[in-house]
């Protein structure tokens, strides 16, 4: 993908390796941290993120679970109430639907409902997104749903540095945090500056500066958007690419700052358009940045259908660089 070449002061590694190093770090630095999830131990992780951790840390701390999402997520919630720092892996966001009650009714409700008697310092990692030709039940992007819920922090690391360091921030947060790892990113390589020790988990980030249009995105769509920005640049359109990074709480200021500069905005979201995080971003601009706009807001989202298996249909369903280019171009230079 679009990552720069390694320099002397950086290490080149995959997103997968960055996730693993983050987990290993967490286990080494805090004895309260333990991992639970399906096939994270002996199998090595469905996406090989946890490979080798069982051998290094043992079965007490790398807990293979049966296919009981509700029970092991709830066990994460319960253990977080009693002093542990669980990191629960749900194989994919699609399976998290089986644990929704524990996340929504317990993890995010108990601190408030108990009048602040309990915090739930629970981290849940799960893959999200489409592109692997595995059809509707394995390809959803439901991070926007989770971003609807007060009490959660929702992180979408799209770069190697965020994959490497967002977990540290998540574990320091006394509240439940969900980290969405886009399934198409695990093999991506990137450079990790060797002096980097942490990243913030509160702010969006400008991944490419530009003056003509803001392209606001996150997660698996970031690199498609950066590709689109390159293509637009070759046409003389300088797009600014904002990586939201944190879907909840949303960094409205960074969004408004960018739009105030470019006066045009396209939001790119692998979720469906209706009731999506893109809708929320757009509405915040409408509420607080309306008079900065020189053109209507635009969105590139997934088509409103379950993600199909057939490659041409799946590609047509998901946001693609060419669509982003077309929508942004039309916005800047209406035909």
């Amino acid at each position: 993908m679009n990552a720069p070449q390694a320099t002397a002061a950086a290490t080149r590694l995959t997103y997968r390796e960055a996730c693993k190093q983050a987990l290993r770090d967490a286990l080494l630095s805090d004895p309260r941290v333990f991992l639970m999830g399906e096939d994270i131990g002996r199998y090595g992780g469905c996406y090989a993120v946890t490979k080798g951790l069982l051998e290094e840390f043992g079965e007490e701390r790398i807990r293979d679970t049966p296919l009981s999402e509700s029970a092991f997520v709830g066990a994460g919630v319960g253990s977080a109430m009693v002093g542990m720092r669980p990191i629960v892996e749900i194989m994919t966001v699609n399976f998290s639907l089986l644990a929704l009650d524990q996340i929504v009714n317990n993890a995010v409700t108990i601190p408030h409902m108990s009048g602040g008697q309990f915090a739930i310092p629970l981290v849940i990692r799960m893959t999200t997104g489409g592109g692997r030709r595995v059809a509707a039940q394995h390809s959803r992007s439901l991070e926007g749903w989770y971003a609807h819920i007060p009490g959660l922090r929702v992180l979408t690391p799209a770069t190697v540095e965020d994959a490497r360091f967002m977990l540290k921030g998540a574990l320091a947060d006394p509240n439940p945090v969900i980290i969405f790892e886009h399934v198409m990113l695990y093999n991506m390589e990137g450079d990790l500056p060797s002096d980097m020790k942490e990243v913030d988990i509160a702010h969006a980030k400008v991944r490419r500066a530009g003056r003509d249009v803001s392209l606001i995105t996150y997660g698996g769509s970031l690199f498609k958007t950066l590709q689109a920005a390159d293509a637009l640049a070759s046409e003389g359109i300088e797009a600014e690419v904002i990586d939201l990074r944190v879907l909840r709480p949303l960094d409205t200021k960074s969004i408004l700052d960018s739009v105030a500069k470019t006066r045009r905005c396209v939001i790119i979201d692998e979720g469906w358009r209706s009731g999506s995080i893109s809708a929320e971003v757009g509405m915040r601009i409408a509420e607080e940045g309306f008079f900065e706009l020189d053109a209507p807001l635009r969105r590139v989202c997934s088509r409103e259908a379950p993600i199909p298996y057939a490659a041409h249909l799946e590609d047509a369903c998901l946001p693609q660089a060419a669509t982003i280019v077309a929508v942004a171009r039309e916005l800047v230079r209406p035909s």
Partner: peptide
């Protein structure tokens, strides 16, 4: 499920 976590 919370009971599992508390006991664990």
């Amino acid at each position: 499920p919370l009971a599992l976590g508390v006991a664990l």
